[in-house]
C-alpha cells in the first residue's frame, strides 16, 4: 500500500476536548487533543507563564524514551508559538495519540523503529498546531513542518520531500524542519551523513514549502521537489473551511 503524501485533517471532532484534530500524511495518523488553559497542580505551576504538557502516546504499547524525546522537541517548539505569558499559573495540555504508522516489515519491533523515530515528527508537530488552532488558543504565529530525505551516491544526489518510511530508512541523511508563517526556523533536526551544501539546499527547499511568499525559487533547488505540498496553504484552507462553517450565521 502506498501512503498518500497529500495531508488530510479532521478538525474539532472530539467534543469533550477544547480543541482537537486528526491529521494524516505519509501513512501516519495522529489524533491530537488540546485542553486549556486549565488548573495546574501547585507543585508544577509557573508564576509567570503557562505550563505546557505534551503527551505522545504510541500506536502500540506504552511510551518510552523515544516518546519522551519527541515530547521534549514538541514542548520546546510549542512554547515558542503559544502565548504562554497570557496564562500564568495555568496548564495547557496537548495529547497526541498515534493511531496509524506505515507498514514496515518489523511491525511492533522497537529496535527498528528506534532508528527512525524522527519520521513521525512532522505529523506530530502539524497535529499539535492544528489542534491548538481548533482550540482557539492564542498563538504568536503558526508553524508548518516538512521532512526531506537525501539519497546520495557519490556524484548525484536526490531530494525527496515527505519521504515514505522506506525512503526515509534508505536515505543517506534525513532532515526535519519547521518554520513559522514568517519563514523563521523553529525546528531543525538532521540525521545521517551530509555536507553543509546539502543542508543549505534542504533549508531553502523546506523554507519555500513552509512559507507561502517564498513560492518562487530557482530551478536548481526545485530538483526532485514538486511544486505541490505547501503546508501553509494546506493549513490555511483547512482552517478557512472550519471558520466559515463555524460562522455560517455571521453576515
Amino acid at each position: 500500500m502506498v501512503a498518500s503524501k497529500e495531508p488530510s485533517v479532521l478538525l474539532s471532532h472530539l467534543h469533550r476536548a477544547d480543541g482537537s484534530a486528526t491529521f494524516s500524511q505519509n501513512g501516519y495518523t495522529v489524533i491530537g487533543a488540546v485542553n486549556g488553559p486549565i488548573e495546574v497542580p501547585r507543585r508544577h505551576e509557573l508564576p509567570e507563564e503557562a505550563v505546557i504538557e505534551v503527551l505522545v502516546r504510541p500506536a502500540a504499547g506504552v511510551g518510552g524514551t523515544r516518546e519522551r524525546h519527541l515530547e521534549s522537541i514538541l514542548h520546546s517548539t510549542l512554547r515558542q508559538i503559544i502565548l504562554v505569558h497570557n496564562f500564568p499559573r495555568h496548564l495547557i495540555q496537548v495529547t497526541l495519540q498515534i493511531t496509524n504508522t506505515p507498514e514496515n516489515k518489523n511491525t511492533g519491533s522497537k529496535v527498528v523503529q528506534a532508528g527512525s523515530h524522527l519520521a513521525i515528527l512532522p505529523a506530530l508537530l502539524q497535529t499539535a498546531v492544528l489542534a491548538l488552532l481548533s482550540a482557539s488558543m492564542p498563538l504568536a504565529t503558526i508553524l508548518t513542518s516538512v521532512s526531506i530525505a537525501i539519497h546520495a551516491d557519490g556524484k548525484s544526489r536526490k531530494l525527496i520531500t515527505h519521504p515514505s518510511l522506506k525512503e526515509f530508512e534508505s536515505a543517506s541523511s534525513v532532515h526535519i524542519m519547521a518554520f513559522t508563517s514568517h519563514g523563521e526556523p523553529l525546528v531543525v533536526e538532521s540525521q545521517g551523513t551530509f555536507t553543509l551544501e546539502d543542508w543549505e539546499e534542504v533549508f531553502e527547499t523546506v523554507k519555500a514549502l513552509c512559507h507561502a511568499e517564498h513560492n518562487r525559487i530557482d530551478d536548481n533547488a526545485m530538483q526532485g521537489v514538486d511544486g505541490k505540498g505547501n503546508m501553509l496553504e494546506f493549513v490555511k484552507s483547512a482552517m478557512g473551511e472550519k471558520v466559515a462553517q463555524d460562522l455560517h450565521w455571521h453576515t
Binding site: G19, V34, I38, A135, S136, V243, D246, L247, H250
Partner: peptide, 9 residues
C-alpha cells in the same frame, strides 16, 4: 476577530 472556540476565558 470573530471565532468559535475552545475554552471560555
Amino acid at each position: 476577530v470573530e471565532f468559535n472556540g475552545g475554552r471560555y476565558i
